[in-house]
């Protein structure tokens, strides 16, 4: 043993009994360590465990007192004896040992190991803590939010909306005019999508004018089956971040399309059932980011579509559907009694 500095010896004498007096409290001191470092593999299969098989590793759960005490096999805990408690043995192994727990991310910090050791030495007392119990099954705590899943649409809106704060509710309400449904594209986003479900018949150019007060905040605008005219498209062209525009079954025609030129973020343009004709198609070239355009039930000819496809080979130009041929009739599905 190394000689101890007299002052340190004094400290040991005085301080040690004080420290020893403060008994380790499982719920306060130990459980948070297990929760953080072990539950991912030794927790409640319903809430904690990651991965597809969702079974506690080594068939050991550490999220409940009874799981730790009443387990078949080698003792996980032996009160007063850290050396014959797997729980301590395996966390105290040297780094690199194949049996070290947790297996990844290195051993627990030295003071955490010491704390667990002391807790076992003091009798492995759980206090009032019981944790989860067999039979009680799933913990009532719902799973944490899953990692965010992105889509090309979410990535686009994130980019377009960077730095924009949500607009105040009164401004949105004024723009909605009681007939528009305005929603943020995601929680906390300053970009909006707008539709007029059930109120299409009331939507005219004036309604679009009200919306235009939100200016460059609108990324999706659905005006299908409404009474908007070519005139409104000048206002729409001013919506700088507009990515998706649905004009299906409106009176919009080539003159309107001409006004849209320069809508530089537009990706989706639905002209199904509009008055657009061959004369309007070349105008689509002015929409630099356009990805898909819908032209079924317009006056546009097949030839004009062929020319457009050639000119913009990446653009998806959608016309009449190829439907199943109507040559035969098939019987309705036979139904039989189902065996359970």
């Amino acid at each position: 043993m190394r000689p101890v500095h007299p002052f340190a010896a004094f400290l040991l004498l005085v301080a040690a009994p004080l420290v020893a007096q403060e008994k380790v409290d499982f719920a306060r001191d130990v459980q948070p360590i297990l929760s953080r470092s072990c539950y991912e593999c030794h927790g409640n299969p319903a809430t904690d465990l990651k991965g597809p098989s969702k079974r506690p590793k080594g068939n050991l759960r550490l999220d409940g007192k009874s799981y730790m005490l009443e387990r078949h096999g080698e003792a996980v805990l032996t009160a007063g004896k850290p050396a014959s408690s797997l729980l301590y043995e395996l966390i105290a192994l040297p780094k690199g040992d194949p049996d070290l727990m947790p297996p990844e991310g290195g051993p627990l910090k030295a003071d955490e190991q010491a704390l667990i050791r002391r807790w076992i030495e003091e009798g492995a007392d759980f206090g009032a803590w019981e944790g989860n119990k067999p039979g009680a099954g799933q913990s009532p705590v719902p799973a944490a939010a899953p990692a965010p899943v992105t889509s090309s649409r979410s990535r686009l809106y994130e980019e377009l909306g960077r730095g924009l704060e949500p607009l105040p509710a009164d401004r949105l309400a004024a723009a909605a005019g009681g007939i528009a449904l305005i929603e943020a594209v995601a929680q906390g986003s300053g970009l909006y999508r707008v539709a007029f479900s059930a109120h299409e018949a009331e939507v005219d150019d004036a309604a679009v004018k009200r919306l235009a007060t939100l200016g460059d905040r609108i990324v999706e605008l659905r005006l299908g089956r409404s009474r908007v005219t070519d005139k409104a498209l000048a206002l729409i062209a001013g919506m700088e971040r507009l990515a998706r525009l649905d004009l299906r079954e409106t009176a919009v025609g080539d003159a309107g399309l001409a006004k849209l030129a320069g809508a530089k973020e537009l990706r989706y343009l639905n002209l199904f059932g509009t008055k657009v004709s061959d004369a309007g198609l070349p105008l689509l070239v002015e929409l630099p980011r356009l990805e898909s355009v819908y032209l079924w039930r317009t006056a546009v000819s097949e030839d004009a579509v062929a020319v457009l496809r050639k000119r913009l080979p990446k653009l998806s130009v959608v016309t009449a559907p190829r439907l199943p041929a109507n040559d035969e009739e098939e019987p309705a599905p036979r139904r039989r009694r189902q065996a359970n």
Partner: peptide, 22 residues
């Protein structure tokens, strides 16, 4: 509905047609 609301993730679909093969 006729004001504003904000869903959690960015929706890529507005509606679902769910064909169930019983």
């Amino acid at each position: 509905a006729f004001g504003a609301r904000s869903p959690a993730p960015t929706a890529t679909a507005r509606s679902v047609i769910y064909l169930y093969m019983s």
